[in-house]
Amino acid sequence: MLRKYWKAATLLGVVLVSLLISQVEGSFNQYIFQIVIYAGINIILAVSLNLINGHTGQFSLGHAGFMAIGAYTAAVLTRDVVGSWGMWIGFPVALIGGGLMAAVAGVVVGIPSLRLRGDYLAIVTLGFGEIIRVIIQNLDFVGGARGFAAIPKLTDFFWVFAIVGLVMWSLSNLVKSTYGKGFLAVRDDEIAAEAMGINTTRYKVTAFVTGAFFAGLAGGLYAHYVTYITPTQFSFILSIEHVMMVIVGGMGSNVGVAFAAVLLTVLKELLKLVPDLLWFLPEWLLRILENRMLLFSILLVVIMILRPQGLFGEGDWVRRWWRKLTGRGRKAEATA
């Protein structure tokens, strides 16, 4: 009984704990708290991208585009429609509205992806993300290139981590379900999957739509946390950061990807401390160390050459270690 429902129970637990924490969030160090919130938003983005890039084996470089759609839609909804409905009704409606708009965009991107593979798809999704950015820049009612300001600060610990729980729960269940094996089949061998009667088209579009929906939610959370968004925030570089989290975590491992999202978010902040800690180094060296993308890009190339399955890919040390520690078999690994 407990075993059957432990996942749902964990989700409920996460939601309740985050609700509790959100009640006392004022007493935390605000800087550290902000990093925690960013880490949560990045987990949502990375895990949802993992469904597209990791489990389904497609290659999307446009996650920031979905996030932008979610962020702007949610911000517009809060301003014009649901603003007066209060935090407990209005905010989720705005978030879900953003997620749905992003999901619609996911269909639009998913359909060309049916005919494309690998690098072509990467370029198309990248181009799509840029097109979204250009369109938003030209939309006057969301502020255009000046940005969208004065979004109410509704995002708190509860919303972020309740959605983190939701995304982890629903996506890991989705992939483990009988239906979800189709995603893995599409990744492993598309032709063989097709021959076994799997509707590869539907799986690819489903992956894009689901991934885009959660990216849209994350965008809405982000917009209502930073309270000021501009189109340039959602550039191609941001998409690359998300891809990096998936790759470092190991394509196809939700826990690994979530861990990598936290790791990279924290690393990004730690790099800001470098000049203070290593003050004795020459200035040009500090500038190199401080540039997080420089470090990340080297990391990316090294990981690809030495460990392309990522830190927590299949057959990884964490799971083996966990299994050894608990002395249990495959059942135990899911809790890892």
């Binding site: 690998g118 500038r287 540039n291 993308m293 420089l294 990340f296 190339v301």
Partner: peptide
Amino acid sequence: KPTIIVLITAIGVSLFYQNFFQSV
């Protein structure tokens, strides 16, 4: 190796140059 891996590496190399020049 699979195309995806080479592609990600190429993106990494590209980012490296951009950021190396930005820093230096």
